[in-house]
Amino acid sequence: MPFRRWWITLLLLVPLSAQAFDLDDLQRRLAATPSLAGSFEQQRELADLDSSLSSQGTFLFERGKRVVWQLEKPVEERIELTPQAITDGSGENAPPGGEQVAQLFLQLLEGDWQALESRFTLALSGDQDDWRVALTPREPALRERIAEITLQGSDTIDHLDMRTPDGDRLKVRLFDQHPLNDS
């Protein structure tokens, strides 16, 4: 009998240890694919507008280096984000604060939790095949601009959802993602 009870306890523990999937594990998992390419669908819902702004295109992601965002519809535009700068096709100056937004975007796509943790509280739920990270801003100043960000995915990030306090919402779906060979 004692043996049996011990066995049940062990069985009960198994799912528990599987659940101890943490942000570090997730980061390691995401880092397994250093660079990838795919398609995206972006939908921006604006609170004071019945309609929404939808766009689609392809993207290229090189971990630690850059993200290239290639808009195809309804307008052609290539935007390249690097940790230092944001460059777009028009050559115009990015508006003030634009770099910060770009940097945040880059950190989100990389799953750079250490960097994000200084500004957001992070909550991880789900398991490694279907995880979800919710980010809420720590400081009131940032809370005025961002209400909540959620990331969802498995091997890669599949969904990004950002809400602002005034009711605007940016939804990005990443699909057809395939790793690129470093060659």
Partner: peptide, 27 residues
């Protein structure tokens, strides 16, 4: 148009569809 669909911009189709303010501020 590019601005409206950029993931990093903050489009305001009603108050400022052309991005007058950002153009002014960048100067």
């Amino acid at each position: 148009l590019r601005r409206l669909f950029s993931p990093t911009a903050r489009p305001e189709p009603v108050t400022d569809p052309f991005g007058l303010l950002d153009a002014w501020l960048s100067r």
